[in-house]
Amino acid sequence: MLYSPLYDRAVGRPNFARFIFFDSAAAQVFPEWQRSADEAVGLLQAEAARDPHSAAITQIVGELATQSVEFRTRWAAHNVTTHRNGAKQFCHPEFGDLTLTYNVFEVAAAPGLSLVGYTAQPNSPSAQALSIMSSWSVTSPTESRTRK
């Protein structure tokens, strides 16, 4: 639900970096767009360092570099950082502004794969929104959208 615009608006396979650099809605979904853009580039640079011969990384970096000055500038800066935890801002189409804490957990059995967990301050509007979203995720997509 947090990343639904990324999936809903994707042409082909959804990709966070493509969404950030190519979709005009990205700045609305991620109010701290500059930070999200830096994170997207940092994640790609870390993955390129981990697997420098990856055809998939070469393809996405090439696509982004040839079509986005914002991406090229960040890529050239070589500010490789891994974001293992922190706070992230979202602007959800139905719940408004959300501030969530995230933690990244490596999946030991699958190198390069990680799981990101989001939490909110107890009793905050963000916590209430997450609670509602989690109840929607156990119903059908049609039911969840008609329950307002």
Score class of each variant (00 low, 15 high):
residue 72 R to N: 03
residue 74 R to M: 06
residue 83 H to C: 04
residue 52 P to F: 07
residue 57 I to L: 15
residue 76 A to F: 06
residue 68 S to T: 11
residue 54 S to D: 10
residue 60 I to L: 09
residue 67 Q to P: 00
residue 53 H to E: 15
residue 71 F to H: 01
residue 56 A to Y: 09
residue 78 H to I: 00
residue 55 A to V: 08
residue 69 V to K: 13
residue 63 E to H: 02
residue 80 V to W: 04
residue 52 P to I: 07
residue 74 R to A: 07
residue 80 V to R: 15
residue 56 A to R: 13
residue 56 A to K: 13
residue 82 T to I: 12
residue 72 R to M: 02
residue 80 V to F: 02
residue 51 D to M: 15
residue 64 L to S: 05
residue 68 S to E: 02
residue 66 T to H: 07
residue 83 H to A: 12
residue 67 Q to A: 12
residue 55 A to T: 10
residue 74 R to N: 08
residue 80 V to K: 13
residue 59 Q to F: 05
residue 60 I to G: 01
residue 64 L to K: 02
residue 63 E to C: 01
residue 75 W to R: 08
residue 77 A to R: 13
residue 69 V to I: 14
residue 71 F to I: 00
residue 65 A to Y: 05
residue 79 N to W: 06
residue 67 Q to E: 09
residue 83 H to F: 14
residue 62 G to W: 03
residue 70 E to R: 08
residue 81 T to D: 09
residue 51 D to H: 14
residue 57 I to N: 06
residue 78 H to Q: 14
residue 81 T to A: 15
residue 59 Q to G: 03
residue 64 L to C: 07
residue 62 G to M: 00
residue 78 H to D: 12
residue 65 A to D: 10
residue 71 F to E: 00
residue 82 T to S: 14
residue 83 H to Y: 15
residue 75 W to G: 07
residue 66 T to G: 12
residue 67 Q to Y: 02
residue 52 P to M: 03
residue 81 T to Y: 06
residue 78 H to Y: 02
residue 81 T to F: 05
residue 73 T to R: 15
residue 70 E to I: 02
residue 56 A to S: 13
residue 60 I to T: 06
residue 52 P to L: 06
residue 61 V to H: 00
residue 83 H to N: 13
residue 77 A to S: 13
residue 66 T to F: 04
residue 54 S to V: 11
residue 81 T to W: 00
residue 81 T to Q: 14
residue 76 A to H: 07
residue 55 A to C: 05
residue 73 T to F: 07
residue 55 A to P: 02
residue 60 I to M: 03
residue 70 E to W: 04
residue 70 E to S: 14
residue 70 E to N: 13
residue 79 N to L: 10
residue 54 S to L: 01
residue 78 H to P: 00
residue 65 A to F: 06
residue 59 Q to I: 00
residue 74 R to K: 08
residue 74 R to E: 06
residue 64 L to W: 03
